[in-house]
Design a protein around this nucleic acid. Sequence first.
DNA 1: GTCACCCTACCGACCGGTCGGTATGCTCAC
DNA 2: GTGAGCATACCGACCGGTCGGTAGGGTGAC
Lengths: 189, 189
Amino acid sequence: MPSATEQKIIDAAVRLFASQGYDATSVQEIVKAAEVTKGALYHYFRSKDDLLFEIYRLLITSQSADMDRIIGLGLSAAETVREILASLVTSTAERVDETAVFVRELHRLGEDRMTDFRAERRRYHETFLAVVEKGQADGEFSSVVPADTVVRIALGVVNQLPMWFRPDGQKTPAQLAGEIADFVLAGLR
Amino acid sequence: MPSATEQKIIDAAVRLFASQGYDATSVQEIVKAAEVTKGALYHYFRSKDDLLFEIYRLLITSQSADMDRIIGLGLSAAETVREILASLVTSTAERVDETAVFVRELHRLGEDRMTDFRAERRRYHETFLAVVEKGQADGEFSSVVPADTVVRIALGVVNQLPMWFRPDGQKTPAQLAGEIADFVLAGLR
DNA sequence: GTCACCCTACCGACCGGTCGGTATGCTCAC
DNA sequence: GTGAGCATACCGACCGGTCGGTAGGGTGAC
């Protein structure tokens, strides 16, 4: 449970990192935007890197929880794929800044954290892959395109969302989620 | 026609920007890796930003030329989409570093260059879009998923390629290009 | 009740070091 | 001789991080 000050710092950092990039954003800028002081920032975070990592952690945690919940519903392969994509697209659309930072600054993770992260992403990737493969094995999905390529495409699309999705655009996140799910499922027929 | 020195600088910069990011790479590092001096770098490029932009320019120019060439062949919609994707995927696979830098550091473009870039990307996007829309109008493609979403998905996948494609992996660029084209076309049936 | 004692939360001036960029001059092909 | 193609020494701005200090609230001994 983050304090109000901590939350202000994270919010400001996400916004600035998303619009300028991590390195191009100074700690001074963050504290100014968050209306706190440097002392406050370094009271809550051990380093600028730590702050970045906290942003990642919040995002990954929530995405993994979503996926686990959907898998737990025990739906058919097609329905599971649709739900996973819909949940991913809508949650990403709601947090475009976090996702933009995440995608763009991933390489800044240190050795240890990168290892942790890769393990978590691998788990995520393979859970999704298993759903597609099961659908193919059961004959619910076509096997023309290998399952791993399908998963790569599907997750890649979501990561690119921040590049073109605009909250004030014509399509609501839910609409978009539906279209993307339709397209991916069509490719699996 | 860039001189040998100029080329060495660009190559080194691409490699370093791709692995560490633009801001995290100092001009000192670049000249050291390129085995030239700062004087040489600032003889050919007006600023570090200029160097980055030159990398963009080379990539965009070649991609646009590829697309124009394919459109000029006058193939069917399906064949055109397949060729565009195949060409994009293989050329991106051959230049993962450039593409990684491009995707990651886009936001660093200044006002003017960003405007130029958006115009060029818009042109690219709409040329592709026109092909898909024509295919849908002619009944060659399904219209279940709106053309603009299909184009976004297709181009998004390519931009994400550097995140997971490995030149020493199991799949050749050509194989991958085929699979991606298959999947996109399947979604258009 | 109150005062000594702490503790968390926060402040902001300051530091060593690095960065992008420049000024100046050499050298060699033409 | 003169200009393109570099090399080298150097500059001022700014950066992430530190550190001595403070404000204010909780708490337990008396």
